[in-house]
Every structure is written in C-alpha cells, then in structure tokens.
Amino acid sequence: MTGAQPPHILVIDDEPDALGAPFAAMRASGWRLSLATDGAQGCRRAELLAPDLILLDVRLPGMDGFAVCRRLRESPRTCAIPVLFLTIAGAPEERLEGLTQGAVDYVMKSCPPAELLARIQIHLELARRHAKPAHGDTPAMPDTEVILRAATRLISEELAALPPLAVIAERVGVTENRLSAIFRRQLGTTMFAWIREERLRQGRRLLADTTLDVQAIANAVGFRGAGNFSTAFRERHGFTPSRYREELRAGHVVAEGHDDVR
C-alpha cells in the first residue's frame, strides 16, 4: 500500500490455524505471507526469504520464540527485520523478555485483526524510514556462527548471574552438546574457558574504567568472591587486580587492547 511492492510477512507459528482471521485480513490487503511451523525452520526461512516483517510465536516446539528472535538478531541478513511477537503467552515477564530480545512489539493473539494489521503497518513504515541497505544481498551467515554469536552475546550480558550451560543452550535454541561443540569448533576452546576469559576481560575493563572495588567487580562479572577473581586475574596476567589498577594509574600499562598487559 505504500509502494509497488506489497509487504512480505513471515509467520512462525506451530498452530497457524488459530490465526485464520488476521491471515485473511492480510491477504485481503494484498500482502504476501510465508509460514514456518517451528523455530529452526523459521530461522532458515527468514535467512532465505528476507521478509519485511516476522510474526513470531513464543511457544514453539524445540527452539522457543525468544531463541529464534536471539538468532535472528545475530545474522546480518535478518538483524534488521522487525519482529513482532504474536502469542497467547501473556505473562508480564514473557512480554518483557520478548521486548528486550529485540522484538519491536508484543501482541496477544486475542487482539482484533484490524489492530494487528495497523500495528504491522506502523512497523513496516518505521522500518522503511530507517532505510536499510537491501539486506537481501548480504551473504547468508552459517548457522553455527549465528548460534555462537547469540550465545556469546547472552553470556556477556548475563555474566553476573550466568544460568547453567543447559539453559544457555536452550535459550539460543540448541542442545548443550551442540553448543559446546560449536564453541570448540569455532573458537577452539571450551565454553567454560571462554566464559572465564570473558569474565576476566570485563573485569579488566571495569578495573580500568570504573572505581568499583575488586569485590564489586568480581560480583559484577560473576566470580564467586574477590579471592577467586584475583587469583584468576593473577594467573592470567601475572599480577593482581589492585596492582593492575595501580600500574594503570601510574601509566605503566595501557588499558585498551587485548594483548598481554605486561
């Protein structure tokens, strides 16, 4: 309706039958509709089709909607596509989770079709205004890379209170087994070692950029106590966090960069 090209909507839902009314309305408007019935399929189709907008259910078999959303955000081909959650899962924490995962809206399935369409149109319009380069040209990113990115982002964001590995894997839509294998293959390291390294990296950044004490930093990056943090830091860098900070202030070392500070 805004341009020659009618909008292309990808719907990822395991029970599309329940969406008869909105689908009818969309088709009536001349929109193109594609459908995927589980998360993995949805991800693949999104990569492939590069739709204008994705309608995503939360409760999906296998990988849930949040994991799909997380993955969509990592892939260069799909990261700019607006995602709307369309679901019956209306618990406040689920809505919050959805919106913080990068979805542009969170709409209940009970919503009148006209309103849903209106919302979709607003987001299409918004997306058009932020005129992105045609993402269809970007080469597709391998699945494993997308998963790795999603996992590392999740780990980095939740370093302070990291969930068990199984939960992390689930939240990026893979099994624990697979995630470990991906880390091994892509990074040549174990998840534990990567997490440790990430903790130290963030800890070091906090040491340099903030005035938080060592205990607070240890907590912020998920170490069990200042002693553990200091020990790991000393093992990794050859001196203690407090010493690092002193040297930093004295200008003996440079805070930036990932080279060994010595």
């Binding site: 199984a166 087994n177 998840m191």
Partner: peptide, 19 residues
C-alpha cells in the same frame, strides 16, 4: 556438583563425545 558436571560435559562435547 552441577558445575563439575557441566565442566566435564562441556569439555567432552567439544571433542565429539556424547556426554
């Protein structure tokens, strides 16, 4: 210990084992 299980599984999974 959950941590120990995870640690070992993580290590083994990385090398193709099924842990």
């Amino acid at each position: 210990q959950l941590q120990n299980r995870e640690l070992l599984c993580d290590l083994l999974d990385g090398f193709g084992f099924v842990a």
